[in-house]
């Protein structure tokens, strides 16, 4: 912007910092600054991380001890089968809170201030989603620790396992835009949670996560084959305990990009319309 202000009446003392000038890469800088805000808020109220810490422990214990014997013959073998897949469920569930928190946050006065600032309309949403990456990291660490205690061992290598975690987090990051959109459209935080669960259940349970695909009825096998979450889970399995990962990685990344491209603009549009 080249407009110069000619109206300024000179203040008595020279200001420490003058009127800010527009700088390039605004959206990235603003989103990061707002992401930092969201991160500070989470770290200052650590009980917000309780769900992503405990939920993976509980789910893993329930599945391993209830289904381990029936599905794999032993809990030891089952944990090798379950853990890489349940990683995807764990991290996806962690993303629901982004929609719920944004729904609460947006009603507060501070969002009025954000709206009155010369920043991209998407920046507050991107910031929230970025700040919530901490939730995915905590969920991943909690799950892998639980798995390790129960006897899970990575069969491939450190880098391969790390790639599985990163891929899962990218997947969840992109899918969380669905929850952001829901958070923008629904009035009450409780409603956001309910709808998010409805979306997540067929996606995470219509998979080969807890039982091998071959044991499922035909129609369900068909769903499992097209369900992108299955592919994310199979990719994670291949990268952690061995197998060919290529197709599954391509499927889940492709779907991630698609979801991001569709839902992020819709979420921003819903945010602009919400007053």
């Amino acid at each position: 912007m080249t407009t110069t202000t000619t109206t300024a009446t000179a203040p008595p003392t020279r200001p420490v910092v003058s009127r800010p000038q527009e700088r390039p890469f605004g959206l990235i800088r603003h989103s990061l600054a707002l992401g930092r805000r969201s991160l500070i808020k989470t770290l200052r109220t650590p009980e917000q991380l309780l769900d992503v810490t405990l939920q993976p422990i509980i789910f893993t214990l329930v599945y391993v001890y209830l289904l381990g014997g029936a599905v794999s013959g032993s809990t030891q073998d089952y944990v090798q089968f379950l853990l890489p897949a349940i990683l995807v469920q764990t991290v996806l569930f962690g993303g629901m809170a982004t929609g719920v928190n944004l729904n609460t946050d947006i009603g507060k006065g501070v969002f009025d201030r954000f709206r009155s600032l010369p920043i991209g309309r998407s920046a507050p949403l991107i910031g929230s989603v970025l700040g919530d990456l901490i939730r995915y990291v905590v969920a991943t660490v909690s799950l892998l620790t639980t798995g390790f205690v129960l006897g899970f061992r990575v069969q491939t290598g450190f880098l391969s396992a790390l790639l599985a975690c990163v891929l899962t987090i990218v997947f969840a990051f992109c899918l969380s835009w669905i929850f952001v959109l829901v958070g923008m459209l629904v009035r009450e935080p409780g409603g956001v949670q309910g709808i998010a669960f409805l979306v997540l259940f067929p996606l995470t349970f219509g998979t080969s996560m807890i039982t091998p695909k071959e044991t499922l009825p035909g129609w369900l096998q068909t769903w499992v084959e097209v369900n992108p979450v299955s592919h994310a889970m199979e990719a994670s399995r291949a990268l952690m305990v061995g197998g060919s990962a290529g197709t599954h990685i391509a499927w889940s990344l492709g779907f991630s990009v698609l979801v991001l491209a569709v839902f992020a603009p819709l979420a921003v549009r819903a945010y602009r319309r919400r007053t």
Binding site: Q21, H30, V110, R113
Partner: peptide, 23 residues
């Protein structure tokens, strides 16, 4: 209604606004 972030400190609130204004 107070348009500041309750969880952030006074400094953090103002620094955030400054950064969003391209300072």
């Amino acid at each position: 209604y107070a348009s500041v972030d309750e969880d952030l400190t006074g400094t953090e609130n103002l620094v955030l606004i400054g950064q969003l204004l391209d300072l």
